[in-house]
Nucleic acid binder design. Structure first.
Length: 675
DNA sequence: GATCCTCGAGTTCG
DNA sequence: CTCGAGGATC
């Protein structure tokens, strides 16, 4: 092997080891086995031994522990602080049960306790004669770090027990296990405050909790909204309760915060039956939860079962699918939108999140990249927002090794090479070349899209094809495509060509509102296009309208009015409109004024979240509109009702916070019928 | 002038 | 879904 191969390998190993260190020590979510990790570390040590001059101070081999925490005193735990075996579905849970029944038949007589698996950090709290004397992190399970001073600043940690009740006996020595974490609300508030102060924000509550506990300055920890929930006794000078359920009650009596959503069930079948309910509950818990822990209630039996590997047999963690995951950002690339906006996106090392493999994610705009200091080569946290669209939360700066490249926004359009421009006071950068091919493709895509002219069979690929072949130079040309044109294209057999031509022909019947949407005037989308169609009746009238007339349309202010006016002054656009008219794409608007005030939903604003059982979203919106209501996208005080479907998003939380009434599909139908 | 609300634009994967 | 921006409202 050549030296240059070795350098690459060393770099690669360092990067990976750094990642796995982080996963293991900070996130407590290892991706690989200890064995694999040791193999990797050994390989790196071997390579560095062979090339001593390549050893850099930031190499993970130069650390004594996994991650630099040596400034804290090490504490040996009185008993191993074990992790939990993972289950990913009900079958895994049943499998676990069957295994432990075979080991000890007393299991069949035990009840089970379900508790939330909080996404935080385990802490170990020591009490002597009821006084808090030491607090430690979990560390590797055997040895943790002494963070007593920091934990003292956490108000939820009792400094003396019992806190209230006097009739509870406290053992002279008691060691309690708890989870330290930050509530979602507190996390958001903290990040907002940091942002206002121009400080760096945190990635997620867990990260923040970890960072806060490891502050060298306890005063700083004190400013972080950490809290704890206790759930186990690690060691005690006296006998403590024999069941998990009683133990939770006992901890509560002593004055420890204890979860109030734990449940006691009689059998494993009942525990399994509760799983869907717990899954559904995930979003309503005010802190991050990454699963539900199912524990044998009988702690003596649980103890006797012992451990398998590093996991106690008496409990199992049913893990929810991860919503956040780390991966490498390989490269930043830039798309050109239909308006000429440059939209950067991240090319990622593929990772599975929420059941799909994500390869790229939007980065919104260049300010976003600069603010978060996202660099090419960074490890980044990815989240699937609302469980659909992935986005980059931010870089994991702890994992940087110096090879990351800060990002420079392009000065030229990645499609046409023309210089890009930045409008005063706006975040976006634009390619202002009217002939930019990327913009043309996006424009045509928009024209044929579902909310506009809805031409079936004309996807991204085909649009690109007809544009690159020069068959379509503006969207008017779509209607000039012939059967012969299409048959000449790659991958077009007779049937496919006919289908597409039919779809194009059919689209001539689309409403004026859709045609206005399709034109792609900046600032004019579905909603405004509908209002414009209603106010002006046809394109001819709209094209001759004055800025003052536009002003009278609701939602049109100076900027949008100018944008519409200018669009119709542009000779290129005049040409396209003439083309559309000559072909027969010329819908007449309703321009009729239905008396909306008499309709049942008049004056009501609806927001839909999740999937409705029997009604696609666009049809639900149509139903609302037809009956005089309005369907909008974001929940506010002005929202009359939230229509709740399956797998709701964050709108549900917001609706609850604002006290917006929540209804289901059936209720919406009843209201639409005026009942 | 500040704040709230709504809309538009771009976006992922199968 | 997220973000930015324009418009409406107080």
């Amino acid at each position: 092997m050549s030296d240059s191969d070795d350098t690459k390998l060393i770099e690669q190993l360092r990067k990976e080891i750094n990642l796995h260190n982080y996963r293991y020590h900070v996130l407590d979510e290892p991706l690989i086995s200890d064995y694999e990790y040791d193999q990797m570390a050994q390989k790196l040590r071997d390579l560095e031994a062979a090339h001593p001059d390549w050893v850099t101070p930031d190499s993970p081999t130069q650390r004594t522990g996994g991650i630099a925490l040596d400034r804290f005193v090490k504490v040996r735990h009185p008993a191993a602080i074990l992790s939990l075996a993972n289950a990913f579905n009900a079958e895994d849970v049943k499998g676990w049960y069957e295994r432990i029944v075979r080991l000890d038949t007393r299991v069949t007589r035990s009840k089970f306790v379900l508790e939330p698996k909080i996404d935080g950090l385990t802490v170990v709290l020591h009490y002597e004669d009821g006084v808090f004397v030491q607090g430690a992190t979990r560390g590797d399970g055997e040895v943790g770090e002494d963070v007593t001073a920091n934990l003292r600043t956490v108000k939820a940690v009792p400094l003396r027990i019992p806190v209230h009740e006097e009739d509870v006996h406290v053992p002279s020595r008691l060691v309690v296990r708890a989870e330290a974490f930050i509530r979602l609300k507190d996390f958001e508030r903290l990040n907002k405050k940091l942002e206002e102060e121009g400080e760096k924000t945190y990635l997620n509550p867990r990260n923040t909790a970890a960072g806060s506990l490891r502050q060298l300055d306890p005063k700083l920890t004190g400013t972080r909204p950490l809290t704890i929930l206790a759930y186990a006794i690690v060691d005690s000078s006296e006998r403590t309760p024999a069941t998990q359920w009683e133990l939770l009650e006992y901890l509560r009596k002593l004055g420890f915060p204890v979860t109030d959503i734990a449940e006691l069930v009689d059998s494993i079948d009942q525990a399994v039956a509760k799983i869907p309910e717990w899954n559904e509950r995930r979003d309503r818990i005010p802190f991050e939860v990454d699963g539900v822990v199912i524990k044998l209630n009988d702690l003596d039996v649980a103890n006797d079962l012992g451990v398998s590997g590093k996991d106690p047999r008496g409990a199992i963690a049913l893990k929810y699918p991860a919503r956040e995951i780390s991966t490498t950002l390989k490269e930043i690339r830039v798309n050109v939108g239909r308006t000429g906006v440059l939209a950067p996106y991240a090319v990622l090392s593929p990772v599975e999140i929420g059941g799909v493999v994500v390869k790229q994610a939007t980065l919104h705009n260049f300010d976003f990249i600069a603010e978060k200091d996202i660099r090419e080569g960074d490890h980044v946290m990815i989240k699937r927002a609302g469980d659909v669209i992935p986005y980059v939360i931010g870089p994991i700066k702890e994992l940087r090794n110096g090879s990351e490249k800060p990002y420079e926004p392009p000065s030229k359009c990645p499609s046409c090479g023309q210089p890009v421009e930045h409008l005063e006071g706006e975040v976006a950068w634009y390619c202002i070349n009217v002939g930019c091919p990327a913009q043309l493709v996006r424009n045509v895509e928009h024209f044929v899209s579902r909310e506009a002219m809805d031409i079936d069979g004309m996807g991204e690929k085909i649009v690109e094809l007809v544009v690159s072949k020069g068959l379509v130079k503006d969207y008017g040309d779509i209607y000039k495509l012939t059967r012969a044109d299409l048959l000449n294209l790659e991958g077009f057999a007779g049937k496919k060509a006919d289908n597409l031509l039919d779809a194009i022909e059919e689209s001539k019947q689309q409403s004026l509102a859709r045609l206005i949407t399709a034109l792609g005037i900046r600032g004019v989308g579905e909603v405004l296009a509908g209002d414009l169609a209603e106010s002006f009746g046809d394109l001819e009238e709209l094209s001759k309208v004055s800025i003052n007339d536009l002003y009278r349309v609701e939602g049109v202010g100076p900027n949008i009015a100018k944008s519409i006016y200018d669009w119709f002054q542009n000779p290129r656009n005049v040409q396209v409109i003439d083309k559309l008219r000559s072909i027969g794409v010329w819908p007449r608007g309703a321009k009729e004024r239905v008396n909306k005030a008499s309709l049942p939903l008049f004056g009501k604003t609806f927001v839909i979240t999740g999937t409705l059982p029997n009604l696609p979203r666009d049809q639900a919106e149509q139903l609302i509109a037809q009956n005089g209501g309005k369907a909008t996208d974001s929940v506010s005080r002005a929202t009359s009702y939230l229509v709740l479907g399956e797998n709701p998003g964050s709108k549900l939380d917001r609706a609850r916070a604002l006290g917006v009434p929540i209804i289901d599909e059936a209720a919406l139908r009843r209201m639409a019928e005026g009942k």
